[in-house]
């Protein structure tokens, strides 16, 4: 594939890596948050709901800048992470993961929350009378029933992570081979003369990845839906 430059490859691989990690790492927290918002009543319910949705309505650049302030090497959380775990986020690919996860989080939570709200609590009650603890009820009844919603949430989050640009470039910049994700690469190619070719190729890759994820999720979700429909 010599028509595909090394820089382009790096961008594609990096984007895939960042998106997969972003989705995997945020999924458990996404399910927990969705469950809390759907089922629990607690003080600060509205506040949590607002915080989760904030990245959806803030300009991405603002989110990125806030991340830089908090998770930058001199930021409160950033300094602590570096001291305790030796983990640096700003201007690293790990930071791109954080930015993508936060930007994708509202979409993931929303899809999973809708699925949880559609589960009949009576089924969970039935499971508890059969001797299943709350955790067992969740893993054996709730989780299988919300699987289609979880798949939808994962795919939406993955797509959002692949396309994330504003927050990422603000927080981790645009360093080829390190933090230059697919959208950043397209942007960079468009800034230089003769960059239309590589940009176009990356655009095609983007479309293929997005379509592939959509089709795969549709197939998976259809199978899961069939299973939980009980017929």
């Amino acid at each position: 594939m010599d028509w595909f430059g090394q820089e382009e490859w790096q961008a594609v691989i990096l984007s895939l890596k960042v998106s997969v990690w972003a989705v995997l790492l945020s999924l458990p927290l996404g399910i927990l948050t969705a469950y809390a918002l759907a089922r629990w009543q607690f003080r600060g319910h509205q506040l949590l709901n607002g915080l989760v949705h904030l990245p959806l309505i803030l300009p991405p650049v603002v989110t990125g800048y806030l991340l830089l302030l908090t998770f930058g090497r001199r930021g409160l959380a950033g300094a602590w992470l570096e001291e305790t775990f030796g983990l640096v986020l700003a201007f690293r690919w790990t930071g791109a993961v954080l930015a993508a996860a936060i930007m994708a989080f509202p979409l993931m939570v929303r899809a999973i929350r809708l699925a949880i709200e559609a589960v009949d609590p009576k089924l969970e009650q039935a499971a508890s009378t059969l001797g299943a603890s709350r955790f067992a009820v969740f893993t054996t009844v709730t989780l299988p029933l919300i699987l289609p919603g979880v798949i939808t949430g994962v795919v939406l989050a993955f797509a959002k992570a692949m396309g994330e640009f504003g927050a990422t470039i603000t927080f981790v910049s645009n360093i080829p081979g390190q933090t230059q994700t697919l959208p950043s690469a397209i942007y960079t190619f468009l800034q230089v003369p003769g960059g239309e070719g590589p940009a176009l190729r990356l655009v095609i890759v983007s479309i293929i990845v997005a379509m592939g994820a959509l089709v795969a999720s549709e197939l998976l979700a259809r199978r899961a839906r069939k299973r939980v429909s009980g017929v």
Partner: peptide, 29 residues
């Protein structure tokens, strides 16, 4: 809590788990 009372509840609407076969519903008990 309900799961420690060990009482078998048969509901008016059955409440079988839709994602499990009849066999696995029974085995759930």
């Amino acid at each position: 809590p309900p799961h420690k009372r060990r009482l078998g509840y048969v509901f008016q609407d059955g409440r079988l788990f839709p994602h499990l076969s009849v066999r696995r519903n029974l085995l759930y008990g």
